[in-house]
Design a protein around this nucleic acid. Sequence first.
DNA 1: CCGGCGTGTGAACATCCGGTGACCGCCGAG
DNA 2: CTCGGCGGTCACCGGATGTTCACACGCCGG
Lengths: 265, 265
Amino acid sequence: MTTERSSSAQPLRLAVIDTDSGFLQVLDKRLERLGWEHRTLASPVPVDALVAMRLSALVVDLAVLGPSAWDYLERVCTEMPGLGVVVCTGQSTVAQRVRGLRLGADDWLGKPCHPEELIARVEAVVRRRRRSDAREERPAVAAGELEIRADRFQAFVDGVSVDLTRREFELIELLAASEGRVLEREEIYQRVWGYAMVRGDRSVDVFVRKLRQKLEKTSPAWRYIHTHFGVGYRFAAERADGTEPPADVADAEPAAGAAVAFSSS
Amino acid sequence: MTTERSSSAQPLRLAVIDTDSGFLQVLDKRLERLGWEHRTLASPVPVDALVAMRLSALVVDLAVLGPSAWDYLERVCTEMPGLGVVVCTGQSTVAQRVRGLRLGADDWLGKPCHPEELIARVEAVVRRRRRSDAREERPAVAAGELEIRADRFQAFVDGVSVDLTRREFELIELLAASEGRVLEREEIYQRVWGYAMVRGDRSVDVFVRKLRQKLEKTSPAWRYIHTHFGVGYRFAAERADGTEPPADVADAEPAAGAAVAFSSS
DNA sequence: CCGGCGTGTGAACATCCGGTGACCGCCGAG
DNA sequence: CTCGGCGGTCACCGGATGTTCACACGCCGG
């Protein structure tokens, strides 16, 4: 029953590369009703431009892409691994469909098709991404002296803003959300920047440095971002001096016996 | 890093609920060739049983499910959010397909269909699943006093880091994963370094030594890596003194939730 | 019991990696 | 049209790692 399923709590961002005006019209109307942010493109745009759109999913008619369709599809899928890609195109053979899917497309729907089915497929494709990325709506996270407020797009120490820029914030937010885990640069880059990192890019390192600088200035007694040589970074609030190892997952500690050590000092 | 990692290495685990013997036969053959662990079920099995199979993906023909198909589908998708679900069934209407996808199915393919397309779609679904929710969910492996945490790229003894470098970690991770089995240098090199070992290369030996040193320092009472002269190395936690002979090899294979026998053999 | 490999070491050497600081181009605000 | 903030690149460098060597030592077959 009309489970209108507000799964779309957060607006999806969708781009459609197609030229079938009739189809687009109906689709547009439907998308509008759903409240999805969408944009239709009559011709293939540079991959960079797509990246800039920060899309959740992309629907594309291979026919519109012309001869370099396969190449384009592959590049899009490679450079934006997190993007949901649904090919919606006319007549096709099994071989073509298999090829498209193997290149990275998430689904393939033949035309003519019902807009509702296309939407359902896009939802299905995006659904998984959501599930994992599902760390939305978190008012605030705390670690050490740090308090990260997603709603303010800012981190604070004792109420004082650390004065992070957007990227810096997104980075620390990701790290903090994965507290304790070591994140590899590629993963960080992909999740913060949205597309694949090219080998040799030092952006992550540079931003980590900027973050560390600001955090150091605002919260000198703590260390938050730890480097794992040859791997990546790990977020964990630790005092500058060895004091108080964060008792972390650790093991069954002194449990009973050991009367709690008073933090007299 | 080209670390394509074991992502592709670990076999997929797939179950197919269908009765079309002809189709199944072809599919089976193909899956066999791909090296996927698979199992076909002629009738819907309890969701619990499915859970026990630890599947990566499930292919199901709604027709086989009978009247409670929708309900079954929904339950499966709800209880196993990480499972890739591909409906592969006969004639269907747009409304049915939309319903199936909305209930949680990841893809819907009509019959008759080409096995290759079905496989490509399953791959696409699994690919997405891995990419998103994926990332390491390997809690930790333990052996002796050792605890190997993949999410930290590090091994611990009683909560204390053994302080391994990336290579060292990958090496011990591989060895531990093959606990009890003797691995030849060539294989080790191939799997850790990613390419063929040139004759005369002592890298593996050197790293084994480094590992042994660090492990010895952190966990003196145990021996983990054993040399098999003229062959290679074997991982097995054993006390330094002869104490506690490895219990019974009784073959620690009970673990595997392999409650069901997959035709992976 | 002896000599030949295959392995364990330790250290020198060659690379790779990550921390920095400087610099550049884009863009919105003034 | 400027100016300043921000995101992103570069080149340099010290240190962490990985690789290669030469040698000592132990396991094996004769």
